[in-house]
Simulated scan of single mutants.
Amino acid sequence: MNANVGTLDRIVRIIIGLALISQVFVGLHTLWGWIGILPLATGLMGWCGLYTVLGIRTCPLRKES
């Protein structure tokens, strides 16, 4: 599992994930907020399965020496 999510992308995913999850406890009080686990998890791991399938990579390639 190579990282395919860049730094800015990770930050945005974590913020969106936390905002969605917070809607379960504060605000709308709906279970739909738990969908925020997906962007939060992909942001914390730095890997997105959908990006792999679509061939997208926002993380810069590492140069191996």
Rank of each mutant, 00 (worst) to 15 (best):
63 K>D: 13
42 T>L: 08
32 W>I: 08
23 Q>S: 13
65 S>H: 14
2 N>P: 05
29 H>Q: 13
36 G>A: 02
36 G>L: 00
51 Y>L: 12
20 L>N: 03
15 I>H: 00
51 Y>T: 05
25 F>R: 15
19 A>Y: 09
16 I>N: 05
22 S>Q: 13
64 E>H: 14
63 K>H: 08
62 R>G: 15
47 W>N: 08
7 T>G: 12
59 C>M: 08
38 L>D: 03
62 R>H: 12
58 T>H: 06
15 I>D: 00
27 G>W: 14
32 W>D: 15
14 I>P: 03
47 W>G: 09
17 G>A: 10
57 R>H: 11
14 I>D: 05
24 V>F: 15
29 H>A: 01
42 T>H: 03
8 L>V: 13
18 L>I: 03
42 T>R: 04
53 V>R: 10
51 Y>W: 03
12 V>Y: 06
25 F>N: 15
37 I>H: 06
33 G>V: 07
38 L>W: 00
37 I>T: 07
13 R>S: 01
3 A>Q: 13
26 V>F: 12
15 I>F: 04
30 T>K: 12
1 M>T: 13
11 I>K: 09
56 I>F: 15
8 L>Q: 10
19 A>G: 07
12 V>K: 01
56 I>G: 09
16 I>P: 02
45 M>N: 11
64 E>P: 10
63 K>M: 09
3 A>S: 09
56 I>N: 07
32 W>H: 11
20 L>P: 05
34 W>E: 09
9 D>E: 14
13 R>A: 01
32 W>F: 06
28 L>Y: 15
2 N>Y: 04
47 W>R: 11
51 Y>P: 04
31 L>W: 14
15 I>E: 10
10 R>T: 06
40 L>H: 04
10 R>A: 00
31 L>C: 05
54 L>K: 04
13 R>K: 13
55 G>M: 05
43 G>S: 01
7 T>R: 14
51 Y>E: 10
20 L>M: 13
62 R>I: 13
27 G>S: 11
11 I>T: 05
62 R>A: 15
9 D>T: 11
46 G>R: 02
14 I>N: 00
65 S>P: 08
8 L>G: 07
26 V>L: 14
65 S>Y: 04
41 A>I: 11
51 Y>H: 09
5 V>Q: 02
21 I>D: 06
19 A>V: 12
11 I>Y: 14
15 I>L: 07
7 T>M: 14
22 S>N: 12
29 H>E: 01
4 N>Q: 01
61 L>N: 10
17 G>R: 03
56 I>A: 06
44 L>F: 08
27 G>C: 10
